[in-house]
Design a protein around this nucleic acid. Structure first.
Length: 112
DNA sequence: AGTTTGACTTGTT
DNA sequence: TAACAAGCCAAAC
């Protein structure tokens, strides 16, 4: 059985450059609505395992940067800017950048 | 095996 | 609009 963490990681890797997803959205996609907090743990672990893991494409439900360290927030904003995502005052417009899996490409795990 | 912990979310003040 | 509180659930201890 595939773990929650693995499913979350797969979905994050599926997010196209220039788009973002929220913690809660990932939890739901991975099959556990409400496990948004746990998603952060997955990002931390995956980032250690894979330096190129696109953790920066994950933001909170308000479109804000939620990194646990102040300095990391700056990094995330910079990485997003490099992909064309404009971050203003630590936040971005979800109505512009939020990725909706169905409209763009097949999910890594065609749910169900 | 029970407890603690969060890079979250949502509702209430 | 901003601050606070409670709920949430998989992982790590």
């Amino acid at each position: 059985m595939e773990t929650f963490s693995e499913r979350v990681a797969a979905w994050v890797r599926a997010v196209p450059s220039g788009r973002v997803v929220t913690y809660g959205q990932l939890a739901t996609l991975a099959g556990s609505p409400g496990a948004a907090r746990q998603v952060s743990g997955v990002l931390r672990r995956e980032t250690l395992r894979d330096a190129w893991f696109p953790w920066h494409r994950v933001v909170n439900a308000q479109g804000g940067i939620s990194t646990y360290k102040v300095g990391e927030g700056e990094l995330q904003a910079a990485l997003l800017a490099r992909e064309g995502v404009m971050v203003v005052d630590g936040a971005l417009r979800l109505e512009v950048y939020l990725w909706r899996p169905a409209e763009d490409g097949p999910p890594p795990k065609p749910n169900r």
